[in-house]
Design a protein around this nucleic acid. Sequence first.
DNA 1: CCTTGTTAGATTGGATCCAATATCCGCGCA
DNA 2: TGCGCGGATATTGGATCCAATCTAACAAGG
Lengths: 230, 230
Amino acid sequence: MTTDLTRLVETTRPRFRTATEFVEATLRAAILDGVLAAGAPLRQEELAAAFGVSRMPVREALRQLEATALVEFHPHRGAVVAEISAEDAADISAIRAAIEPQALRLSLPHLEKADFDRAAELIAEMDAEKDFGRMGELNRRLHMTLYARAGRPRLLTLVEQHLAAADRYLRFQFTALGYHPQSQDEHYALLGACRAGELEQACQLLTEHVLYAETRLTAFLRERETTAQD
Amino acid sequence: MTTDLTRLVETTRPRFRTATEFVEATLRAAILDGVLAAGAPLRQEELAAAFGVSRMPVREALRQLEATALVEFHPHRGAVVAEISAEDAADISAIRAAIEPQALRLSLPHLEKADFDRAAELIAEMDAEKDFGRMGELNRRLHMTLYARAGRPRLLTLVEQHLAAADRYLRFQFTALGYHPQSQDEHYALLGACRAGELEQACQLLTEHVLYAETRLTAFLRERETTAQD
DNA sequence: CCTTGTTAGATTGGATCCAATATCCGCGCA
DNA sequence: TGCGCGGATATTGGATCCAATCTAACAAGG
């Protein structure tokens, strides 16, 4: 683990103004990308060494990640990467199903042709992409492109966080089952409705898109959880 | 400010296992209750003295509050209590309007008579309550009572956070204009629909309830912002 | 008189050090 | 042989100390 992190460290370090910012962003990416597995203990000393800083920025970063449920603190026992479960996946999906249509509703009236074209590009890129990590990134950017003009920073931050959280789960599913192609059909349909300015239909499609993803994902996770008990 | 905090400190200290938890919870309450005004600088040394701890638990607490947008960090310049604005109020309302109906949708089928009775009690208490601080607390508990059986911890945490954030704004409005009685009518109607098991109607009423509150609030805030420029 | 450079003070960011608590292993005893 | 107790060790929580940087005041020059 240490070496995996060290590589990221040198490349991204100079972009941040404080060590805490740097550690926080890098740790978040590492957790979301699956570099740090669920349940893995996050020893402060170890991380500090990997990042080339002292324990303090690590502690502050961990605190911030705790607030977004990416790590769990156990007093005097340290922090661990948040576990994943079918229950939690359903939880995240319920949130996405609530806030993403809201974001789209507020954004769609202000979207312009350039935005739709950008979205179409991203979908096309996803068709060609093989790497699951890049795939998740593209998926997030596609969704965020459609919501970007909502003009509601808090809402968009929430959406981004939960897209990323969902992505953490999807990576799991993809590596086991491969990418689910139906999802791309849904993207095309969604973009079509958006381009046509069909607000209600677009929201409907989006809700179903999130719901389908949840159904596929939780089915996979539940099976995985039951077979794991053998 | 120091003295206001000191009073809270003694009464709540023993309930927490770590100083950071204690500082975080107390600071959050102080900000939401308006004890610490919007824009107020949060000097680490000052807070540390008020809480009777060193600067470190204060720093960790501030980091956690930053992640929930209650405080803003400016590198090397310190933290301030998040500002309030009509824009931000609308942002929070948009989030509430999205997630609260979702929570109700998931919870309502599992609510029992005892839950409805508890909610009715809370509404009645609100009719009698004069203090705006207690009023907000009761309002939050009422809403959460209706959502409690959703069985989605993340979603409920989000709802609770944004109810609290909205409450911070409502306190502003109430102290200037007094409590808006229409809100209570909406509560009674909502509870009625819930009791009758009318899921769709209840969600509709709830959405409108949040929306009305937003309309009243932003109108008040916008007026306040324009008159403040004289 | 206004602008700009410089410097002193205040305040945060980060590192190190000490104390408190949990875990783990071995020993004694039933 | 199994269970409980106690100390050693590792790790976190908290305090203190030092360095980096921002703010503000003041002086010099245009």
